[in-house]
């Protein structure tokens, strides 16, 4: 059984009641993700409500990923790629910028502020810049307010209960002590 679900009201990393906005950052492996790593090594402070998604290149970002993030309740989305001219795949970051622009147009049509989505360019040496970007987006979202697509606390709790239940069932259905048991047997 999942130990966390065994304890009712156990503290979780993401509190459903939290008014903090959720920011999703699509980060290129070669720049923004390394910059985030550097920001950590430099002990820089930046808002903890950002979730990083590592991509091999921002050229992997599709418009539907960006919309899906908003549909699932992200308050802001960052696409962070290499400096222009510095893409490891030549023009992935340039393509990403154009897709971000298209997604902004769609957000406008939908009725969501396009400012919630932004593309940034930085190098892997710019840990400070990464912290700045996240802080800037966090401030921007605080100014705009939470996303109108944000599920209410009850829906989040229901979704989390469902996920926990699914995880419990999956764990219960797995053969018990498979890998660990054999390792301990030696």
């Amino acid at each position: 059984m999942n130990p966390q679900s065994a304890i009712p009201n156990a503290p979780r990393r993401t509190s459903p009641q939290s008014p903090e906005p959720l920011i999703l950052a699509f980060c290129c492996h070669y720049c923004a993700y390394a910059a985030a790593d550097l920001a950590g090594s430099m002990r820089l402070q930046y808002p903890a409500n950002v979730r990083l998604l590592r991509l091999p290149c921002t050229g992997r970002v599709e418009v539907n990923y960006l919309l899906a993030a908003f549909e699932r309740g992200a308050d802001a989305v960052i696409v962070a790629g290499c400096l222009e001219g510095g893409c490891h795949f030549q023009e992935g970051n340039l393509r990403a910028r154009r897709r971000v622009e298209r997604a902004k147009g769609l957000l406008r049509e939908i009725g969501i502020e396009p400012e919630r989505l932004e593309m940034f360019n930085l190098s892997s040496a710019e840990g400070g810049r990464f912290a700045e970007i996240v802080t800037e987006m966090n401030e921007r979202v605080k100014h705009l307010g939470l996303s109108p697509m944000k599920p209410d606390a009850q829906s989040i709790q229901a979704a989390m209960r469902e996920m926990t239940h699914e995880a419990d069932e999956r764990i219960a259905s797995e053969p018990s002590g498979r890998a660990r048991g054999s390792a301990h047997a030696k």
Binding site: E62, L67, F70, E71, L106, I110, G111, I112
Partner: peptide, 18 residues
């Protein structure tokens, strides 16, 4: 298929906001 995915997402959000 890709455009349908995008429009599906956009329409669900637009409907909800309306």
């Amino acid at each position: 298929e890709r455009e349908i995915g995008i429009l599906g997402s956009a329409l669900r959000m637009a409907l909800r906001l309306a």
